[in-house]
């Protein structure tokens, strides 16, 4: 593992000015991604995870949003970089796949054309060579009859096949980082497993790092090396995946773990986290999770907690409760009930 992380995000904020107020979709987010690592970014809808993902590629329109903070990829600054610089990063160094492959692929161009195009943007090769590479990638991601599939349109494929094609398109220039924004949400459960396996396999084979954005803790547990838990635009906890599931150090994570339905046990009612996420225009002054937190006290309403070590150096959490107290609560109250 290299010392310098491949991707360094520090204090990232993405704000959208709207007539109704300033929407703080991402507010002071920090994390690292090391080369070859699979980082899961997990959170509810509206937690800012997709916005953060797009910000890494500089995909937010400068006129409609304000992005501050630092995003460094292999030492190069993304925030505030010129459009031409960003263009060279996109696709060749950092690639992104999206949630709905049907709407994310152009309906009027063939799959093959779109793949070739992705390749030729960053590589000066002939059409034939690009085509060959595209077919190669299609075969690699498990699409049968790749040569014929080259000339097919997106709507002719099934959901799983489309997502494979998107992955092929993303990896065709061999990027160092793949950002996968909820890649399995729109797919059947069985296909989900296949796609996740594919992402994992390709990450191993190509050595690319992956930022896997999802709302599904199960996906995270299956596939990721490290996890970032986001809530209302902020990171509330980040840790090694094993650490997160065995020793979670944030009330929000406890709530998340508690709300996962289990097939292998009989239980009473489902236990969601009561309440609603806060408005991103009207964020509470203190801890953003405080209104729904069963362990909130004094300073939680007024002071925003900092991200600090919780247990081990690699494990960070944002909570006012002292670490030993949290470990106690976890051991005695939460864990036994799960």
């Amino acid at each position: 593992m290299a010392d310098e992380p491949l991707l360094r995000v520090r204090d990232l904020s993405v704000h959208f000015p709207t007539p109704d107020g300033l929407v703080r979709s991402v507010d002071g987010l920090s994390f690292d991604v090391r080369a070859g690592e699979i980082l899961g970014v997990v959170g509810e809808s509206g937690s800012g995870k997709s916005v953060a993902g797009k910000a890494i590629l500089g995909l937010h329109e400068p006129g409609q949003s304000v992005t501050t903070g630092e995003i460094r990829y292999a030492g190069r600054q993304v925030v505030g970089a010129a459009e031409e610089e960003l263009r060279q990063l996109r696709g060749s160094e950092i690639a992104m796949i999206f949630q709905d492959p049907l709407s994310s692929l152009h309906p009027y161009f063939t799959i093959g054309d779109q793949l070739s195009e992705a390749y030729r943007v960053h590589n000066r090769v002939s059409r034939k060579a690009a085509r060959a590479r595209a077919v190669e990638m299609l075969t690699l991601v498990g699409i049968p009859a790749a040569a014929r599939s080259y000339g097919a349109y997106p709507h002719e494929f099934s959901g799983g096949m489309r997502q494979r094609a998107m992955i092929a398109m993303a990896l065709i220039c061999d990027p160092g980082l793949l950002i996968a924004d909820e890649p399995t949400t729109a797919l059947d459960v069985t296909v989900q497993a296949q796609i996740l396996q594919l992402i994992w396999d390709l990450s191993q084979e190509f050595g690319s790092a992956v930022v896997l954005i999802t709302h599904d803790l199960g996906v995270v547990a299956e596939t990721c090396d490290r996890v970032v838990v986001m809530y209302a635009g902020r990171c509330l906890e980040q840790a090694d995946v094993v650490d997160l599931f065995e020793r979670p150090m944030s009330p929000y994570t406890w709530g998340l773990l508690g709300s996962i339905p289990r097939i292998d046990e009989t239980r009473g009612d489902l236990a969601p986290i009561a309440g609603q996420p806060p408005s991103l225009i009207d964020l509470p002054p203190g801890c953003s999770f405080e209104p729904r937190c069963g362990f909130a006290f004094g300073s939680c309403t007024s002071e925003r907690p900092e991200l600090s070590a919780a247990g081990s150096e690699d494990h960070l959490a944002r909570c006012h409760l002292p670490v030993p107290d949290r470990q106690e609560i976890w051991r005695t109250q939460i864990a036994p009930a799960l």
Binding site: G258, A271, P291
Partner: peptide, 14 residues
């Protein structure tokens, strides 16, 4: 299953 959080009424007002 113990409730992890209280259904805090305050959440509704804000």
């Amino acid at each position: 299953m113990t409730a992890v959080t209280d259904p805090v009424a305050a959440a509704g007002t804000r």
